[in-house]
Amino acid sequence: MSLSREDVEKVSLLSRLKLSEDELVVMTDQMSRIIDYIDLLSEVNTDDVEPMTHAVEQFNVFADDVVHQSLPRDEALANAPKRDDECFHVPAVLGD
């Protein structure tokens, strides 16, 4: 297995996903098999090959610095799971 349970647990924290014990076991197995498969690329010689970040090469796309109307606040907050009339709410950032 190319990945350990601990590796997967660490990735789940980085990914901000809470996996159950069962999910961790399945995920470790599935990810290992996928990683083994994608390791196929190591056989390709990519010396002197420039990485291709964009499907189409474009440069210098800018917008002018002109103010546009922002959203009304009630629309900006409308989808928030927890909020007051002004702000989004989250569990205390400081604290515990």
Binding site: L41, V44, T46, V49, E50, P51, M52
Partner: peptide, 15 residues
């Protein structure tokens, strides 16, 4: 480097 960067390079070869 081993995965993402490598894949971007192979991507260019595919193109």
């Amino acid at each position: 480097d081993a995965y993402y960067l490598k894949a971007l390079k192979v991507r260019r070869l595919i193109r």
